[in-house]
């Protein structure tokens, strides 16, 4: 049989090769910087682990049921915070969503401002917001509600504006042609199209907010996080075990219910 021929080499354009090498070099440099820069005291971490492992892990799996009432009350307070915050956000996000949607606000400058506000709000981690509000209104659940409300407004406003931008504009045009005024178009042409998605996103956001509000108490903004903070500073790992268990169960139930409701809406 005749000698087989090798396939021709793949031709890469030099630009592509150079581009790839630059990216590869940048990534390698980033990792070198990371590993040289990070300062982990392995010896100390190991020593601590030897001392503490036994004191922490087994206790986490042995929840302190005597604290059940206290923990459950705090969890319910967390749910109140999440609910009040989410609902506030669901309403606050509506005008911002309209402002940021290209097809609702015909002024490019204004939509730009709207989008910028929304992404600016989103960039703040919830806990940092909570920290700010704790300083402003004192260490109570109200600070938590405000943190959740503001944090969620950023995300919901963005999602709302995307929903608005995807609506069927022919309906709106038809109404304009019929001589309907702006408010009528809004209530009969726009809102019926976006209500299911708005609701669905708001409920989804409630799910996220329940998770987020479990930790707000760590900085003093109420809810179960307060107990998390105390349990860890008192090294009460049995109670921490119960707290984690309750969070897992409640969050799972909320996720389940919310998914079921959202399925029915859309």
């Amino acid at each position: 049989m005749a000698e087989l021929q090798m396939p021709p080499k793949k031709k890469n354009s030099p630009v592509k090769t150079i581009k790839r090498s630059i990216i590869a070099a940048a990534v390698i440099a980033l990792y070198i910087w990371t590993f040289l820069g990070i300062n982990i005291d392995w010896a100390r971490a190991f020593e601590r682990m030897v001392n503490n492992f036994e004191r922490v892990i087994p206790r986490l799996f042995n929840p302190d049921w005597d604290a059940f009432d206290k923990v459950m009350d705090a969890m319910i307070e967390t749910l109140y915070i999440a609910f009040a915050g989410s609902l506030m956000a669901a309403i606050l996000a509506i005008p911002l969503g309209f402002l940021a949607a290209n097809n609702m606000t015909n002024n490019r400058f204004l939509t730009g401002v709207g989008k910028w506000i929304l992404s600016a709000v989103r960039a703040f981690p919830d806990l940092i917001l909570a920290l700010l509000f704790v300083v402003a209104v004192g260490p109570n659940p109200f600070a938590g509600v405000l943190a959740i409300a503001i944090g969620s407004t950023g995300m919901l406003g963005k999602l709302y504006s995307e929903v608005l931008e995807s609506i069927d504009m022919k309906v709106v045009e038809a109404m304009e042609a019929n001589g309907a005024n702006k408010l009528q178009i809004l209530f009969h042409g726009v809102i019926p199209q976006v209500i299911p998605e708005f609701l669905s996103y708001a409920i989804y956001r409630f799910e996220v907010d329940v998770r987020a509000s479990t930790i707000l108490g760590v900085v003093g903004a109420g809810g179960i996080g307060t107990l998390i903070f105390f349990a860890s500073s008192n090294r009460n790992w049995n109670e921490m075990g119960l707290i984690i268990l309750i969070i897992i169960v409640v969050v799972t139930i909320i996720d389940f219910i919310s998914a079921a409701i959202r399925k029915r809406i859309v």
């Binding site: 392995w42 601590r48 682990m49 503490n52 492992f53 790992w237």
Partner: peptide, 20 residues
């Protein structure tokens, strides 16, 4: 479902304060 802060608190409890 376990919040990141809770994980951090547990690991701080085991390994002490720090990046690790």
């Amino acid at each position: 479902t376990i919040p990141d802060i809770v994980l951090a608190l547990i690991f701080v409890g085991i390994f002490g304060l720090g990046v690790f």
